[in-house]
Design a protein around this nucleic acid. Structure first.
Length: 222
DNA sequence: AAATCGGGGGG
DNA sequence: CCCCCAGATTT
């Protein structure tokens, strides 16, 4: 695999941040005033679910479960039932339940490293990355299908089927978000993926990145 | 690598 | 109607 030059990474960062400034989405959990509790549990809610769906559901959930303490007093079944409208409710319910019990054992203190987060049952590498990014304030990629698609279209495709284990995507995503504003870069990529660089019918014509995008420049020659 | 979980929104 | 969505686990 050919090495991607730094200059191409820098340009990608500059252009997408500029686009984000004008076109980025606004969600409650992105607000700096959102609690650490909110920043983490929303990542579970968001799994395989459109962000807009969660945006409509988020305040209802917070009214019922505003804190780790409150959440840890709920039964697994109750949480699952509350999550029904957003789908994948049994799994998400179990995740939140186990996480809340874990927090209760630790007297409400977060783990100190991503390794501890990944040790919690049903908490994978995406949550661990989100934890590093939002709680520890370290650069880490929110590498989901969305980000994978944007990066692959722009820089070139991965080798493995599974996003999590592809070394090319892992390194590339890390290099891309390794920036002074890692959260903004992450949000910018996710937003572009949801609004412009969509899986079906991507709107390349209005895409700020098309000039240097492999996907666009391959397709335009047909 | 493929199946599975899942309701809701969009085309 | 079918496809897709801020994933993770099991086989």
């Amino acid at each position: 695999m050919k090495e991607i030059p730094d200059t191409k990474i820098f340009k990608f960062q500059r252009v997408i941040l500029n686009w984000y400034k004008e076109n980025g989405r606004h969600f409650k959990w992105r607000n700096p005033s959102a609690s650490n509790y909110q920043k983490i549990i929303v990542e579970v809610l968001l799994q395989r679910t459109k962000a807009e769906t969660i945006a409509n559901f988020f305040s209802d959930f917070l009214k019922l479960y505003p804190s780790w303490k409150k959440l840890s007093t709920a039964s697994e079944k109750d949480i699952q039932s509350v999550l029904r409208p957003i789908g994948l409710y049994n799994q998400k319910g179990s995740r939140l339940y186990k996480m809340a019990q874990e927090m209760r054992c630790k007297n409400g203190r977060f783990p100190k490293s991503r390794e501890e987060v990944e040790k919690i049952p049903m908490m994978g590498q995406y949550i661990a990355n989100a934890y590093e990014l939002f709680i520890l304030n370290k650069p880490a990629p929110l590498l989901d299908v969305n980000m994978a698609r944007v990066l692959e279209r722009y820089f070139g495709p991965r080798k493995l089927v599974d996003i999590r284990y592809d070394p090319y995507l892992k390194k590339l995503s890390m290099d891309v978000v390794n920036h002074k504003f890692p959260k903004k870069i992450n949000w910018a990529i996710l937003d572009l993926g949801a609004m412009v660089c969509k899986k079906k019918n991507p709107n390349c014509q209005i895409c700020p990145l098309k000039e240097n995008c492999l996907y666009f420049n391959d397709n335009i020659l047909e």
